[in-house]
Nucleic acid binder design. Sequence first.
DNA 1: TCGTCGTACCTTGCGGAGCAAGGTACCTTG
DNA 2: CAAGGTACCTTGCTCCGCAAGGTACGACGA
Lengths: 98, 98
Amino acid sequence: MLEHCVLALLAGGERYGYDLVAELSAAGLLASEGTIYPLLSRLRKEQLVKTAWRESPSGPPRRYYALTERGQVALDGFRPAWAEFSSAVDKLLERGRT
Amino acid sequence: MLEHCVLALLAGGERYGYDLVAELSAAGLLASEGTIYPLLSRLRKEQLVKTAWRESPSGPPRRYYALTERGQVALDGFRPAWAEFSSAVDKLLERGRT
DNA sequence: TCGTCGTACCTTGCGGAGCAAGGTACCTTG
DNA sequence: CAAGGTACCTTGCTCCGCAAGGTACGACGA
């Protein structure tokens, strides 16, 4: 779930972890860094993203994440799955409405 | 997530576990009984549902589940949360579209 | 009448995922 | 030079979904 949201964000361009935390937190999809960093490690291990260290204009260096081709494929595969899933839930919720 | 989907189904009337499994499986939201029975136990423990044993016209007795008032409240609280969540995901996926 | 199948319940054990909390280190600012 | 923001990561816990296994009842065919 979150995993694919991250991929979607990366599809919009390179991002670094701390930035992703802020963005996802603002969107109400994430609580803390303890979630995202292990997730990003996983994505890297599965080669859905590639990373590059780059210096920050001010502060410690950042690790930037970018989609790989496999990551793009995973994302594309997720879109219809999400559409189906969310519409299934919508229908259930609708059905139970008094 | 699933928890609230079950509540939504129960909002449409009494159901028994085995039936819920079939319904949720058909909707693609559930894999097996190993998920639903512990979930139903939880709901009962939190008093979001109440249960009643009733005999089946053919086969072993069934345990029927029905929403309690608290369950209804939980369900009502979930609807807007789901709407917000799913639209947040929609936006992310949209944003990453090439 | 006896075995087998479908129904219906439940538990156990495992793996994965999110989170809070803690830890390190860099840079800027007062 | 200390404090606070930035930025990375790990550890430990808990919860949840699932596969698998286990029990028991009723029906139906051999």
